[in-house]
């Protein structure tokens, strides 16, 4: 809240907040807003061998929307989001509830250990998991051979999406757990006393009292996870050399935009693909927020 002193200061001092905001504003405009407009501009043009760059209106968008390769990537991330996000958040929630309960000791040890993978660069996480999965010297393959069962085919076409899902889950469960844990810490402790006096066990208390109270934090995690899923790039990109036949250049929309730009030099189409992907993320997030707002209304 501003104090009354501020109104009495000279006209020049009205500029002060703008000056503090200026560095961020300049970087924000040049690094975030400008490229967005530039991408939109590019998406409306097409480069021709003959005749240079011409305005083509929505043609790139029609090309992208009618491109089965693009939709295959969208389908991959959609399936990934529908299955991986609930599993990851479910795990994060269970761990956060356990760590917040009075059942266990060494809580900060577990919390730190579970959060640790978040500090590991996704490139390195993907490399290490890739080697663990690997058919050459991967320990799972070695174990399977030792006991004489079929080798797990982590990098095969039918498994690859879930092998990637595992890497993403490994990286982000702890991150989400910490957010949920922080929200749980804000739940008043006297509720717990009351519940235990009523004879509710720790599991009932967690489910019926704590969970509804931290729904907003859970929705926040879900939104961030959905956005992250649509941006999936690093893990498939790193695993590609190890599984080149099953991770195509259009495995995710981001990978597709990347290869359109750098392999086939179709930057205008790539810009349209980026824009459509961002729009899909926006729509999915919006629908999810509306759905979540209704679900957590006063009636429940």
């Amino acid at each position: 809240m501003p104090s009354p002193h501020r109104q009495r200061r000279s006209r020049l001092s009205g500029l002060v907040p703008y000056l503090f905001l200026a560095p961020f504003f300049v970087l924000f405009m040049t690094m975030l807003v400008l490229p967005m407009f530039y991408a939109f501009y590019l998406s409306l043009y097409q480069e021709r061998m003959v005749g240079g760059t011409i305005f083509v209106g929505i043609r790139n968008y029609r090309t992208a929307l009618g491109d089965p390769a693009f939709w295959e990537g969208v389908r991959n991330v959609a399936m990934f989001g529908i299955i991986q996000v609930p599993i990851m958040l479910g795990l994060a929630l269970v761990l956060a509830l356990i760590l917040d309960s009075t059942l266990i000791k060494a809580r900060s040890f577990f919390r730190t250990a579970f959060y640790l993978p978040y500090a590991v660069p996704t490139v390195i996480a993907a490399l290490v998991w890739g080697y663990l999965y690997g058919p050459n010297f991967g320990p799972f393959t070695q174990l399977a051979e030792m006991i004489g069962v079929a080798r797990p085919r982590f990098l095969s076409e039918s498994w690859i999406l879930w092998s990637i899902a595992n890497i993403v889950t490994w990286t982000f469960v702890g991150y989400n757990m910490v957010i949920l844990f922080a929200a749980l810490q804000a739940v008043p402790r006297d509720l717990e006393e009351a519940a235990s006096l009523d004879g509710a066990g720790p599991f009932q208390f967690a489910w019926h009292v704590k969970l509804p109270l931290i729904m907003p934090a859970l929705y926040l995690c879900a939104i961030f996870s959905i956005i992250g899923t649509f941006q999936l790039f690093n893990e498939p990109m790193i695993l590609r050399p190890m599984a080149s036949s099953v991770i195509g250049r259009n495995f995710t929309p981001n990978l597709y935009a990347y290869s359109l730009t750098f392999t086939s030099a179709q930057i205008n189409l790539a810009a349209a693909v980026s824009f459509i992907t961002a729009t899909i993320v926006g729509i999915v997030s919006f629908v999810f927020i509306r759905f979540a707002a209704r679900g957590s209304g006063p009636t429940t």
Binding site: P35, M36, Q231, F233, N254, A257, A278
Partner: peptide
């Protein structure tokens, strides 16, 4: 989605 901006930023 941040990475959607990286390619346009590169072109810029």
């Amino acid at each position: 989605p941040n990475t959607a901006l990286v390619i346009p930023l590169f072109l810029l």
